[in-house]
Design a protein around this nucleic acid. Structure first.
Length: 851
RNA sequence: GCGAGAGUGGCGAAACUGGUAUACGCACUGGACUUAGAAUCCAGCGGAGCAAUCCUUGGGGGUUCGAGUCCCCCCUUUCGCACCA
């Protein structure tokens, strides 16, 4: 038979039909209980309402929707929410540019983007929408802030912070990339300011340790977080300042931090950060003060250090281990906010110290020699040992009583000695700094703090929350934050004494909102006066599958983990980790580059949806590459996806015509009526189907290589079409069992594809079964009573593939060998059977003959 | 520099624990249907060769009956960190 061409698939009417059906029926809204149904929390990183959905979002949400819909088919109670991370700079910048209000701009964008998400047919529970710029959301954040403030987890301090001139605000360390602002790319300067911080360092150890339990996270992300936390164990040692003309008799000590106590006898100078409090004290001459100022200034301008720079302070310090007097240098490469701000420099065994020592002609003393060469690689070791700096561990020399020890042991003994003598201490340092959350901008969550002339820093009363962001600010883009200029906001009475006070005008980093939004989704009734309920969070969390871009590997994902631990310690729940499984999807690129306006390679989803429909766009982004890889955009690939959907639809129509005399329309998956006289071709395609269902289950349960699932469905549809359009196919002579099997086949393919292209599949299911796919029964894998009678076996001679033979299924080795030797191609190589030295046989697959 | 990943047709990509490399799709070529086009369908499509055959998973070596897959060295590339002592 021929597949009819005239019934074209009208995606417009079908897609809007199902979208309104889902909305009307509330198909995807869930309760916070579901009897004995297991729960599944499927979450995608929520978007910033920048104006329109872009391809990266489409990909992210298509992946999430595939997971959510699959899990629903599998009988899970699925929470699949969406929201908007709606505080942030672009809104404020747009307000300045267009002379509007950020709230209005944001609202318009959200409305538009909700429309786009609905047109794409994602299965969200819209009842749980979260918009973080709503006071009903951020008031809870202010409450968390107050509670953290009381526990000392939120505090204010003056420090050097990263300042972006273009964004006119400070940035957290995580938000500085290569010395540039993560958002706008302009250079970041260092500024000394008073700032609010969250004490994330108090959780450094737990944040590090708990990574080990996150089996469902990519190693890459865990490694990035480990590096970011940057734990290192070492020793602090006090060096007494001695013997400088100006400091005679001074009791000053300089404390250094090292992870290589084993090299301490090789220390030939102290290198001190220009910001070190002792630096100014040690310097007495005018020239040196000028030097210090020069280096300080350069360090403030940029974090990048082009070349090592420094000078001798004129002071010396005594190594407490051997009394050796070594010069104290100011060095630009020493960081003030790591360790103690000063280091002992061992040029012989540290590349940086070596470079600096070479430049300034400082003594170099070798104290580590390579360990005795290992068997087998003598030569390499010998060569390497000649050069300095030698940074590997080895055996100690020139180190007094510690000579002959190996590095590891020496570190331990030297540390113990220092502790015993009272001039050193074993310490653990982290690279992680506290999270600076102050932003000098308007469009963010206000910090609920007041500065009173009498009482100092005073937190608002919890009953006074929310502290609503005032709507009457003006946006000029000049000078200080709009909040600071708004007197009605700034001037306030102190909650403690009632006297005159001023409000904090900084707002919070928007990463604070995204650190707990996944908890807010669990609250069904937003009128309840709680951020979320313990029992709901306990039911839904942790998120079973979290999906988003790798760009949040450190920032958002670390902050969220931190927040969950803080909320746990504030007794909100007992959760330790928010996200059980994490999938980091690749970027959508075009012509090898990330889509961006400046490159002019942006593909706008709107136009594509209009032209091809949502299913086509979704199918393409899922089919073109596995989720974790970058996806290269390809316009004709999209057309291919569209063609496939049309072909699939026509196949279903053709199938429904064949099956139209089946009475039993309400039974999509009858196949137990199997009889012996089933068409051989049907047996074969059913056999193939069951193998593909098996494979699909594996992919859908965690590997998420949807591209291979889709290609398998394409194969099934191709085979089905070949069968019904083939010579052998005669509709009239089909048995009822044949027809039920065909129906089973088509319904199964529809279900495999439903998570990816839900509109056309819903339609197809209705056509075949006159019922709704979401309510339908689930197919089981069946074998159709069919085992292939024979199989192809590859025959190799001396490891080379020589022929493909057909043998009965499950044949034993002698039988296969016999057939193989009958093959002319094999005979050509083997000739006489007596030449065979050995054979290897893999049942139903391969025979390897060695001669 | 350090760390992690990736190199397979013209392109996107398949290949589960070593067992018929290039499935599926795109592009392309030829054909059918059409006044014509679109759509659709059929056939072909890693390279060389008339052919039989030979070669082919970044390069080189190794283990194995057998390697895209495992081991060693090198090249290219992407990402992350980069004076964290």
């Amino acid at each position: 038979m021929k597949i009819s061409e005239d019934k074209n698939y009208d995606f417009n009417s079908v897609e809007s039909k199902w979208q309104s059906f889902w909305e009307k029926e509330n198909t995807f809204s869930v309760k916070n209980t579901a009897g004995d149904k297991p729960k599944f929390y499927c979450l995608e990183m929520f978007p910033y309402p920048s104006g329109r959905i872009h391809m990266g979002h489409v990909r992210n949400y298509a992946i999430g929707d595939a997971v959510a819909r699959f899990k629903r088919l599998k009988g899970f109670n699925v929470l699949h929410p969406i929201g908007f991370d709606s505080f942030g700079l672009p809104a404020e910048n747009a307000a300045i540019k267009n002379k509007t209000n950020p709230a209005l701009w944001t609202k318009n964008n959200i409305d538009y983007m909700i429309g786009q998400l609905k047109e794409l047919g994602f299965s969200y529970d819209w009842n749980r929408l979260v918009i973080t710029s709503d006071p009903e959301y951020y008031k809870w954040e202010q409450l968390f802030f107050l509670q953290m403030f009381k526990k000392g987890l939120a505090y204010k301090k003056i420090s050097n912070v990263n300042w972006c001139d273009s964004c006119n605000t400070t940035l957290a360390n995580e938000q500085v990339e290569d010395g540039r602002c993560w958002r706008c790319g302009s250079n970041v300067n260092i500024k000394n300011m008073e700032q609010w911080f969250f004490k994330i360092t108090a959780y450094a150890e737990e944040l590090l340790n708990d990574l080990d339990g996150l089996d469902g996270w990519p190693d890459k992300v865990k490694t990035m977080q480990r590096n970011w936390i940057g734990k290192s164990s070492g020793l602090t040692v006090n060096f007494k300042i001695v013997d400088s003309d100006e400091n005679n008799g001074d009791e000053n000590c300089v404390e250094i931090f090292t992870t290589r106590p084993d090299t301490i006898f090789g220390a030939t100078y102290i290198a001190m950060s220009p910001f070190h409090p002792l630096a100014k004290k040690l310097i007495k001459t005018a020239e040196k003060t000028a030097e210090l100022e020069r280096i300080t200034r350069n360090s403030l301008i940029s974090k990048d250090i082009a070349e090592k720079d420094g000078f001798f302070t004129g002071s010396y310090a005594a190594n407490p281990f051997n009394g050796k007097k070594i010069p104290v240098f100011i060095a630009n490469f020493v960081l003030m906010d790591y360790g103690t701000g000063a280091i002992m420099s061992v040029p012989a065994h540290d590349a940086r110290d070596y470079e600096f020592a070479e430049k300034y002609g400082i003594e170099i003393i070798r104290v580590i020699k390579p360990a005795a060469p290992q068997e087998g690689n003598k030569s390499e070791n010998a060569e390497e040992s000649e050069g300095l700096p030698f940074t590997a561990p080895g055996t100690l020399i020139n180190s007094g009583e510690f000579d002959g020890l190996f590095s590891e042991e020496a570190k331990e003994k030297i540390s113990k000695y220092a502790e015993k003598e009272g001039f050193g201490k074993k310490v653990v340092n982290y690279r992680l700094r506290d999270w600076g959350i102050s932003r000098q901008r308007y469009w963010g969550c206000p910090i609920p703090i007041v500065y009173c002339e009498k009482c100092g820093t005073v937190p608002l009363n919890e009953s006074d929350l929310p502290l609503v962001l005032p709507g009457d600010a003006t946006f000029t883009g000049e000078g200080v934050s709009p909040l600071k200029k708004l007197e009605s906001f700034v001037n306030v009475k102190c909650p403690k004494c009632g006297g005159n006070a001023k409000r904090e005008t900084d707002t919070m980093d928007t990463f604070v909102e995204s650190s707990w939004y996944f908890l807010r989704y669990t609250l069904l009734d937003r009128k309840e006066e709680v951020p979320f309920k313990d029992e709901d969070a306990a039911y839904w969390l942790p998120v079973d599958q979290y999906i988003g871009g790798v760009e949040h590997a450190v920032m958002h994902l670390l902050y969220s983990r931190f927040f969950v631990k803080v909320l746990r310690d504030l007794k909100y729940f007992k959760l330790d980790e928010p996200f059980k499984n994490l999938l980091t999807q690749g970027m959508v690129v075009k012509n090898g580059a990330k889509m961006s306006k400046s490159k002019g390679n942006v593909v706008d989803p709107d136009g594509l949806i209009k032209k091809f429909g949502a299913d086509t766009v979704r199918l393409f982004v899922l089919f073109a590459a596995p989720p974790e890889k970058d996806l290269e955009w390809n316009d004709s690939g999209v057309e291919g996806a569209s063609r496939f959907i049309n072909r699939f639809y026509r196949t279903v129509i053709a199938g429904s015509e064949i099956l139209k005399d089946l009475q039993d329309n309400s039974e999509p998956f009858i196949y137990k009526t199997l009889t012996n006289d089933i068409n051989q071709n049907i047996k074969e395609i059913i056999y193939k189907l069951s193998r593909i269902i098996e494979k699909t289950e594996i992919e859908m349960e965690g590997r998420y290589h949807f591209n291979t699932v889709i290609s398998s469905s394409m194969e099934l549809i191709n085979e089905f079409n070949d069968f019904i359009t083939g010579e052998a196919f005669k509709k009239d002579v089909m048995s009822k069992a044949d027809k039920y099997l065909l129906k089973y086949f088509l319904n199964s393919v529809i279900l495999i594809l439903y998570p990816f292209i839900p509109h056309v599949c819903s339609e197809a299911f209705e056509i075949l079964n006159a019922s709704f796919i979401e309510n339908g029964p689930r197919p089981e894998k069946i074998d159709a009573g069919y085992v292939p009678e024979n199989c192809n076996i590859a025959v190799q001679v001396n490891g080379k593939m020589r022929d493909l033979i057909v043998a009965d299924i499950n044949s034993d080795e002698p039988a296969v060998l016999k057939i193989a030797l009958e093959s002319a191609k094999i005979a050509k190589y083997v000739g006489d059977k007596s030449l065979i030295k050995k054979t290897i046989y893999v049942k139903n697959k391969l025979l390897s003959i060695i001669i």
